[in-house]
């Protein structure tokens, strides 16, 4: 399993990469593995306000439907439209070509409350063991 150190994570298995005021969001390698073949995505439109901890969209594998939760609050400024026709990119490259949206966040709502790579890895192991 893969837990890039430069990312922050949620317990709902999203990742967040902050670059200035912009945060790129996707789901983790562990999440895509658990879901299996991803065949459908529902993502918010540019301009949508997303709220940390609230649903921002839906990801579906052949068998299951899962909600996506926003790791940060802010306004959606970019959406990976290419994923809508090629959702398998989330499986193939969850931290790269499988990115989902970019959120512009006010400085103060930054990344507090998110997990570090080590914390997330420990959380996944704990969840698996349970």
């Amino acid at each position: 399993m893969d837990f890039p150190a430069d990312l922050k994570y949620t317990k709902e298995h999203e990742w967040a990469r902050q670059e200035g005021k912009e945060v790129t969001v996707g789901i983790t390698s562990h999440a895509q593995e658990e879901l299996g073949d991803i065949v459908f995505l529902e993502l918010p439109e540019v301009g949508t306000e997303v709220v940390r901890g609230k649903t921002l969209g839906v990801v579906e594998s052949v068998k299951a439907v899962s909600d996506l939760y926003s790791p940060v609050s802010g306004r959606v400024v970019r959406v990976n439209e290419g994923l809508l026709d090629a959702p398998e990119r989330v499986n193939e490259d969850p931290y790269g070509k499988g990115w989902m949206i970019v959120v512009e966040t006010p400085e103060e709502t930054g990344r507090e409350g998110l997990l570090s790579a080590a914390e997330y890895e420990a959380f996944v192991k704990e969840e698996k063991g349970a």
Binding site: G36, D37, S61, V62, K63
Partner: peptide, 8 residues
Amino acid sequence: VQFAGVMR
């Protein structure tokens, strides 16, 4: 439920 993946 799956081995290599449902699609494959």
